[in-house]
Amino acid sequence: MEIRVLGIGCARCNELEKRVKDALAELGIAANVEHVTDLKEIAALGVLMTPGLVIDGKVASQGKVPSKDELKKLLGGGK
């Protein structure tokens, strides 16, 4: 699974990255988590609000930090 966290270095974006990693660990999924800060890439994905979460090329959430349970659902459903 390819996971990308979109953000330009704000506190909420770092919080999202941390929660994603926690959720992955609890699910026992090995995935590559990348933190994207390049504006062109963020815009190209159509994300206007950071933090954004992209799972396997699809925007899963934007503008919010989902709870760990929500993240587990998002991450588990992409298998």
Partner: peptide, 17 residues
Amino acid sequence: TPFCSCSAVPLFIGFLE
């Protein structure tokens, strides 16, 4: 419209575009 200060830049780009 909800946004935090760190979203100002992507929004700026999105609006002008």
